[in-house]
Design a protein around this nucleic acid. Structure first.
Length: 635
RNA sequence: GCUGGUGUGGCUCAAAGGCAGAGCAGCGGUAUCGUAAACCGCAGGUUGCGAGUUCAAUUCUCGCCACCAGCUCCA
């Protein structure tokens, strides 16, 4: 008799052959109605699964991530079923649940058009209404292969063939529709309440550009209409903080047709960039870095030596100078290596931390460009740390600390990834193992949670990456720490050790902002354009009520300007409400309204961007207040 | 680069083979006003670029470019 332990610790017994759903049914209430699946001995299972002899059971609801995944996964099957009903000769790819929804890939001779989505959505609604049960059954590899072969589902046959030898091959039947699927699923299609198809895109079969491109339909689903509406509303709100939109509205930058991927920074954007650079220089000065600058164009010979010619050529731009080949730098490291080699180094000098705000150019595929997030010319806040092998862990830890400190100032949350050896790599497997282990050790010693991103390292070494989120939750790699034993070898770098002999230093390549352009994009979205005072392109707007007070407004502005505040007086012939609206939309942190009373008393009526009217104060009082905001970089 | 979509004044959007329009912004005036849009007027366009079909193309067809979403790739 199955013995079941529930999350509250209670233990119950059920007859042989009892199913998970029987427990939910007995418990009643919300579980009976809303459970999507259950974790049985920590494995997510169908509600229709038969209970084993002993089981710890935890029911999953839509509110649990794993519960929602089951819900969305079943939704994707409904999508596939609907498409099969409407377009008979469609071949199926795969259809997983993803964050906030699901997708399904189809191979179809014609292109789906947006209006097809409505038809498919209507058919999905029908399938939901039919409340078809989803039934699991298992097949042997041969049975499954020939089954999908007969159906003409070539992609499914491929999947079956590639499943690991010990895999249980399961399918789910749902009315007239059968799909290869590990599950689990909701008990029936009627459990899905609201579905919405969102967009249409191409996607390569199994993610390889060598394979045919399938048509991917993205959708989402929710147990309540209100939840869908809330989600769609959230998407709308996120679009409002898109850095490309804010960049235009706040006059920060532009990208023109004449220079795809080559952004123009406007004066207001430049203020932010300068602020970021000044802060960066101060932090690096304190962290023991020196600053250098290396050329943008260097001879081909250098790039052959560094390995870029062999490993990175497709991403580089080239030019010829007096019959010789030169390349525009895609990375700053070779220049830094040259600089290191300009003199002898003693072990006593190490570590040497050379920082460089280096402008690099990389050829990115046109389809990959994305505002300031993904461009073809960008400035890396680079640094190369030359060190003794014994200093590696300590230096990696210091960089992690500095990164955390700087991200913290902006209030960023981030996640960390460890990227390992790629296919196209230099150096021995052993070297890679040592380098990767060093990075992993530091992460583990510091108890930092991280994902492993297998095969995503640089061609010269493994790396730790820091990812930040954009307005709609996509993550972008910003900071990275790369450990490198290759460049020192290629460039024959050395230092003189205690023993008077030459030794090979190790090198860390690292960035914290990553690219200043990308970091600015993330920053714009993070603050929705309302930057902290120290970064705001315009910190104060002085707003005279009528022309009579223009002179006083100019005087106030002049005093603030002299105190180092970025201030503008709005002397246009408009009502104060109009000027406030404008300053508010431009996200100016402080507005100073001045009229008769203020002029008479030498004061300003302060209005704050976020909290509105903040009372009247003496000019010098306001100056002290805003200077404190700036000095302390208050958010 | 690939798949699909989009491209009309600085911005947001109308017009669907037959004279290219509105709001905001800009410019000129009037009102001199107290915390998120005063009023009147003026100007602004080879409809992304190039071919083709047609008596006639912003509209239909083809090619190119750019942008958007996703895939691939990456800071």
């Amino acid at each position: 008799m199955p013995k079941v332990t529930l999350t509250d610790g209670s233990v119950r017994e059920y007859p042989e052959g009892a199913r998970v759903a029987d427990i939910a049914y007995e418990l009643g209430g919300r579980l009976k109605k809303d459970a999507t699946a259950a974790k049985v001995n920590n494995v997510v299972r169908d509600l229709s699964a038969v209970l084993p002899g002993e089981a710890e059971v935890r029911f999953l609801l839509f509110d649990d991530d794993e519960g929602a995944e089951v819900y969305r996964h079943t939704s994707s099957h409904i999508l596939a079923q609907a498409v099969k009903r409407l377009f008979a000769d469609v071949k199926l790819g795969i259809g997983p649940a993803i964050k906030d929804g699901y997708y399904y890939d189809f191979d179809y001779s014609e292109s789906f058009v947006p209006s097809d989505l409505e038809k498919i959505e209507a058919e999905m609604a029908k399938i939901i209404k039919e409340d078809l049960p989803l039934e699991r059954f298992e097949l042997s590899r041969e049975e499954a292969a020939s089954y999908f072969e007969k159906l003409g589902e070539g992609y499914k046959v491929e999947l079956v063939r590639d499943l690991p030898a010990d895999a249980v091959i399961s399918c789910y039947r749902c009315g007239d529709f059968v799909d290869l699927c590990a599950g689990p699923h909701l008990p029936s299609t009627g459990k899905v309440k609201v579905v919405k198809l969102l967009n249409l895109a191409g996607a390569y079969w199994r993610g390889s550009e060598k394979n045919p491109m399938l048509q991917r339909i993205y959708g989402t689903s929710f147990p309540k209409r209100a939840l869908l509406d809330e989600y769609l509303h959230r998407l709308e709100e996120a679009k409002k903080r898109d850095h490309r939109k804010l960049g235009r509205e706040l006059d920060l930058f532009s990208i023109q047709e004449e220079g795809p991927g080559f952004p123009l920074l406007h004066p207001r954007g430049m203020v932010i960039r300068n602020g970021l650079e000044a802060y960066w220089r101060e932090e690096h000065r304190q962290a023991g870095y020196e600053e250098i600058k290396t050329p943008i164009i260097l001879n081909r010979v250098l790039w052959e030596r560094s390995g870029h010619w062999a490993h990175y050529k497709e991403n580089m731009y080239f030019t010829r100078i007096e019959e010789q080949d030169f390349a525009v730098k895609p990375m700053n490291c070779p220049g830094a290596m040259l600089l290191f080699k300009t003199k002898m180094h003693s072990y006593r000098d190490l570590p040497i931390r050379m920082a460089e705000l280096g402008l690099v150019h990389r050829h990115e595929l046109s389809g990959a460009l994305h505002g300031l997030m993904r461009v073809r010319a960008f400035t890396q806040d680079d640094a190369h740390i030359f060190m003794l092998p014994s200093q590696i862990k300590d230096e990696v830890a210091r960089v992690i600390e500095l990164t955390d400190r700087m991200y913290h100032l902006f209030g960023f949350e981030y996640h960390v990834e460890l990227s390992t050896k790629p296919e196209k790599a230099m150096g021995s497997a052993e070297m890679w193992e040592i380098a990767t282990a060093a990075l992993r050790d530091v992460l583990e010693e510091r108890k930092i949670t991280y994902l492993v991103n297998a095969g995503d390292g640089a061609f010269y070494g493994p790396k730790i990456d820091f990812h930040l989120k954009d307005s709609i939750g996509r993550t972008w790699q910003c900071g990275t720490i790369q450990l490198d034993f290759q460049m020192p070898e290629k460039f024959d770098l050395n230092y003189v050790g205690e023993d008077g002999q030459k030794h090979r230093p190790a090198v860390i390549h690292r960035v914290i902002y990553g690219s200043i352009e990308r970091f600015m994009a993330v920053l714009i979205e993070h603050f929705a354009g309302a930057f902290p005072v120290w970064l705001s392109p315009q910190q104060v707007a002085v707003l005279p009520i009528t022309e009579k007070f223009h002179q006083y407004a100019k005087d106030v502005a002049a005093r603030l300007w002299a105190a180092g505040v970025r201030v503008e007086a709005d002397l246009r012939n408009e009502k104060v409400g109009y000027k406030i609206r404008e300053a508010q939309l431009q996200k100016v942190p402080y507005m100073l309204v001045v009229g008769e009373k203020e002029e008479a008393a030498g004061t300003v009526a302060v209005r704050e961007r976020t909290s509105g009217e903040a009372g009247t104060m003496k000019i010098e009082e306001f100056i002290a207040k805003i200077k404190l905001d700036i000095q302390e970089k208050r958010r």
